[in-house]
Nucleic acid binder design. Structure first.
Lengths: 243, 243
DNA sequence: CGTCGCCTTGAGTGTTTTCAACTTTGGTGG
DNA sequence: CCACCAAAGTTGAAAACACTCAAGGCGACG
């Protein structure tokens, strides 16, 4: 696990990190009373400030915690012997990752920052101790585990049955919805991950993703400028998914 | 949820069911002391005897339990608006399904018997009450949840990065390994599910699966006779996966 | 201002799908 | 017991989709 970045935090980053921490506490997707969130905050002992390409955890690392993204984007993936990789998911602020280590000693996948990211660690052990004190915490965690299954299953359907067009449309809508949920614009945002990562996630070649973006733009569905994306026709995007 | 089959159990089935129950207790993939397994057995209130095509649960059903397969094969799948479906997994005896309902009120997928199957129900509620009494139970359940994630992620890699040949080889080895684990021959067994189901699971057309079986047989890797499969060259099968 | 990484575009190739016909099997009723 | 039917499986040919290989453009960074 990469702790380096925590040691080389520059002052500007640290200041903004502290300020953010103070105002909005933990960035958790949990619906709990203020004081309970405080309790949760108290079990966070480690923070990670990751630069693009740095690992949060790697395959084989001891899996004894889940992680909350406070800012940035984390991708999880399976590295293969053949050198390629399968991206399993992208995690945005206020999302939790690492559930797959439940009941295992080691991670079976890796997690890497796609952009500069701020992540905090919630050890399973501390979390379990809180279950008795914080009413509803277990249910909320269970709900997140169930959602993680749902996400994986949606992905299996996407990879097993859908064409490239539908996959990319589905991906864009997913990002859009999640950003909107956090109070950002659902129609205009930055794709923080590379085309290669997107393709890797969607089971498509990098070039195919690029071509699809071009086609979507020609059809007036979106406007793509490098990493910046504007959705012009949300309905058409939705139609592509349901096709 | 389909209870019909429990009401129309014929005497022969019932007798064999009871006998089996007596001798090998619950068919659980849990490593616990005898008396604890007894306790677990006591929370089973419902049994399902399902005929091929009958549902164990359907999408939208209240998800308040996990299920242990005692005999037969259960497939889980996502039905889509377009009429097609994505098979998520096959569950053999001694395997548990239904974790995805964790923390949700409803199932987001369906479970159907592929062949005549015997399944028992473990309500989440009863299970949670046992966590305090049975030491290590939570850890074991967590381990199974983690394994479920691992399976899903392996599947994502398979669908995202592998060709038909590698997918089918991987599938056959998975079945082989799981049967061997239960004490059956890893080299000779029946494929209880249809070609359509296999294709659906592997993200391939039914015809492609058929052609691949033919090719594997021509290459001397397996012998296929309808549902009966014999693996002649386990190494070559393994090579195909690792390619 | 040059280099490197990321992205785009084109051309050709390959795998898998689709459509269609045909075979085999298992069940049902005469 | 046999004939018939529906479901499951196989096979072939053509088409679709995405991939690979290759070249070139754009932008960030030193």
């Amino acid at each position: 696990m990469n702790l380096k970045s925590s040691n080389v935090v520059n002052i500007a980053n640290l200041r903004s990190s502290l300020k953010e921490h103070k105002t909005q506490e933990l960035c958790l997707p949990l619906d709990l009373p203020e004081e309970d969130l405080h309790l949760l905050g108290s079990i966070v002992k480690k923070h990670y400030l990751l630069q693009p390409g740095e690992h949060l955890y790697n395959i084989g690392d001891p899996g004894k915690a889940i992680y909350a993204v406070r800012s940035g984007t984390i991708k999880t993936y399976i590295p293969t012997d053949q050198g390629d990789e399968q991206v399993l998911g992208f995690y945005l602020p206020r999302e939790l990752l690492g559930f797959e280590a439940l009941g295992h000693d080691q991670f079976n996948s890796a997690a890497m920052a796609v952009e500069t990211s701020d992540v905090c660690e919630l050890p399973f052990e501390s979390l379990e101790k809180l279950y008795d004190q914080v009413k509803g915490l277990r249910e909320q965690i269970d709900r997140l585990i169930g959602r993680e299954f749902y996400n994986d299953h949606t992905m299996l359907l996407l990879l097993g049955k859908r064409h490239g067009e539908e996959r990319l449309a589905s991906f864009l809508l997913s990002i859009s919805r999640r950003l909107q949920h956090r109070g950002f614009s659902p129609k205009e945002f930055n794709l923080t991950m590379s085309r290669r990562d997107i393709g890797n996630y969607l089971g498509l070649a990098e070039e195919t993703v690029s071509r699809l973006f071009t086609r979507f733009q020609e059809d007036g569905i979106v406007r793509v400028e490098r990493k910046h994306l504007t959705i012009h026709d949300m309905d058409k995007l939705q139609d592509l998914v349901e096709h």
